[in-house]
Design a protein around this nucleic acid. Structure first.
Lengths: 152, 152
DNA sequence: CAATATCACCGTACTTTTTGCGGCATCCGA
DNA sequence: TCGGATGCCGCAAAAAGTACGGTGATATTG
């Protein structure tokens, strides 16, 4: 079994904080030789526990400083498969969840500014997805992660 | 001014997809010498455009496969500063936004399972933050990022 | 308009890190 | 108790990252 033990967890934590740390450096913290740390990381990646090495970027630098949530009820006749496809492709959509409650989907957007919301909604509408929707703006975010551009 | 030109953007994209790509490899794609790519990355990090090198982890491996949104209205007498402090510290909270609309905060949680929601709400309550709340479960997520553990 | 300063890039030499692999101890199952 | 696996180690080779002086283009200024 691929268990992810205490040491793996510590390694993951260190990599999450700074994935450029050297194997020797990490090895020091977990009391393992560099080659052993390497082997563990290799296994974590191979088993899919670590999905990818990446960078976290300042949203403002990418013109995506504005965070917006949109509750969506799809049209009765909407092609739900096509909608999911659209959601996965559109770079403005950071998250999209099928949710409990009165609405069917919750979409999280990252946009340049609030004026871009209108364009997004009109895109949804012209693709015949949109029944009703409700938009919520994030005014400030005590806890927020940076952006990580979607994989190609 | 720190502009982030076309080339920087491409570099960022490549690093986002795989931050372990070699400078030589990246250099090939943007037609720059390794040392030049290095210099650009150094500047992107120094200027804060790239916030950190990190890893994206499978939520399930960290026992955080369940995504939950909680609308929160703070108690009238709640210490808002303390609440923000709490939100920033609690590892269960992935995001916390002050939002427009009927509720004051929108919190995104990553938990082991739905049963952990109750515990979270009771924590909020016993810290005297909670006025009213409404919980929304994510059933499935067409678009979802992996977890990136908060920095220490 | 010419002299000069600045900037980004390049190539090379140097250092550090990663990677591959044989060998060894330990733990488990037969 | 006897394999057999598993995880770790250390070393050597390969690769990657880093530092830096030099160069040409572009911008600045007298």
């Amino acid at each position: 079994m691929s268990s992810v033990d205490k040491i793996d967890l510590k390694i993951i934590e260190m990599l999450a904080a700074d994935s450029r740390r050297s194997l020797a450096d990490i090895g020091n913290s977990v009391d393992l030789a560099p080659s052993s740390v390497n082997e563990r990381i290799r296994r974590l990646v191979a088993s899919g526990v670590i999905r990818r090495f990446t960078v976290e970027v300042d949203p403002a630098a990418l013109d995506r400083a504005t965070q917006i949530y949109v509750w969506v009820a799809l049209r009765e006749d909407a092609d739900e498969g096509a909608f999911r496809e659209f959601a996965g492709t559109d770079p403005r959509i950071e998250e999209c969840h099928h949710v409990t409650g009165a609405w069917s989907y919750l979409i999280k957007l990252r946009l340049k500014d609030v004026s871009a919301v209108e364009e997004f909604l009109s895109d949804l509408k012209s693709a015949n997805f949109l029944g009703r929707s409700e938009t919520v703006l994030a005014l400030s975010s005590p806890v927020e992660a940076g952006v990580i551009p979607k994989g190609a």
